[in-house]
Design a protein around this nucleic acid. Structure first.
Lengths: 223, 223
DNA sequence: GTATACCGTAATGCATGCATAGGTTCGCGT
DNA sequence: ACGCGAACCTATGCATGCATTACGGTATAC
């Protein structure tokens, strides 16, 4: 078991570091020089460096010449930027999906995620709700045939992940949001392209408003 | 003059290779192993490798395990993807700009580019027209305060650059396109957010239609 | 003539070496 | 005690070394 998918050290480093960042184990502002990271990952600087370059391209870290890698904080401005783009792109992706008249089978993952969101909301399990929400959006993306769009939106999800998890408990129960997901799924199934786009857009706009107002109310300048 | 902007070899390699690709001197499908590229750039493999990783993240090349770096061809499907995203994002950027009520001074670059497009069209100088068109779109982006959006759209421009240059001569004179640019500029100046968005969207949709039909008519499967 | 197996070649993935240049700290002078 | 400077330390940027392994070509067998 040494070749198979050819898991290179660079890939391993990338995945591990990305995970550490998204799970907030390497919090925003955290900084470490290459040799230290290499030591922690048990490999030489070379693959670490290459992984860091990719993480920088993904918008998760910043490489500062003599200071090492720094986990980027996400400011309210960043969130505004991210949601502005998501608001423009995700409805497009959903509309495209509706246009392609997917089979019920293809939408099974979406339906399942929706069920889980509703169940999680019912028992007030915010953690599970967030997981299902993430799954919903990512599955929607995966169904889209526009690879570039999927990649871009996926990257933005990653950048916003921490903030969403943190604000999860600072907001009202996502009743409305859950309902909207169900509604969007319906419209996709019905192949109603324009309505899908519109509803999804409203969904994102509302989410952005809520999130930004939380960041403002709680004075969270960078997460 | 050795520090200043600290031009690292990685940056140099990245810029040079990107330029070679965009100018079609390294045509799509072109393939070369790292040592060869390193030799050509007069540096060791290490900085070349790092530059290649960034170029891959930019969507310009593909790194194939034992074959080296390959300049990615852009297929009609790719162009459809790219224009789909641009159609969603650029109107947003333009609308945002209109909303911010920019001063005439800030729009000077746009106005200038528009003038140049009209002048170039007048004297049938397609090359100059393309340059002005590119300048128009990039300046519009630069005025946008959403950095991420600018970066994404800029990257897509780069990916589409070659195809646009090649199809330039295969299409009818861009009379309509030039007019639309002028119109969009007017609406931005007038601060008419919604109209800006709509007109820009039509602009992109028309451009996409024209371009894709050219690719189809001339049977250009990958450029 | 075609298919297969073997071998040589060469590219990659990664480790390591090294010079340079920032940053830091410690000590000195005021 | 505080500010300033010099020496040290260390991170980086890059070069190089090295084992592994895929690829291509050739020779052989059918």
């Amino acid at each position: 078991m040494k070749q198979g998918a050819t898991v290179t050290r660079v890939d391993d480093a990338y995945e591990r570091l990305k995970d550490e960042i998204l799970q907030n184990r390497m919090p925003p502002g955290f900084q470490a020089p290459e040799p230290e990271i290499a030591l922690r990952l048990g490999m030489s600087r070379t693959p670490v460096r290459e992984a860091l370059i990719r993480l920088e391209a993904s918008g998760l870290i910043e490489l500062i010449p003599r200071r090492g890698a720094r986990v980027l904080p996400v400011s309210p401005t960043d969130m505004r930027e991210i949601y502005e783009i998501l608001t423009a792109l995700e409805p497009e992706a959903a509309a495209g999906l509706a246009r392609s008249r997917p089979t019920a089978e293809m939408l099974a993952g979406l339906a399942e995620a929706t069920d889980e969101m509703e169940a999680a909301l019912e028992r007030n399990d915010l953690e599970a709700w967030a997981v299902a929400d993430d799954a919903y959006h990512r599955r929607l993306l995966a169904l889209n045939e526009n690879r570039r769009l999927s990649a871009i939106v996926g990257s933005l999800f990653d950048q916003a992940h921490r903030v969403r998890m943190i604000t999860l408990r600072l907001r009202a129960p996502p009743t409305e949001s859950t309902r909207e997901h169900r509604e969007i799924l319906h419209h996709i199934q019905a192949g109603n392209v324009e309505v899908t786009r519109t509803v999804f857009r409203h969904h994102r706009e509302r989410a952005a408003r809520e999130l930004l107002s939380i960041l403002e109310n709680y004075r969270l300048p960078g997460l």
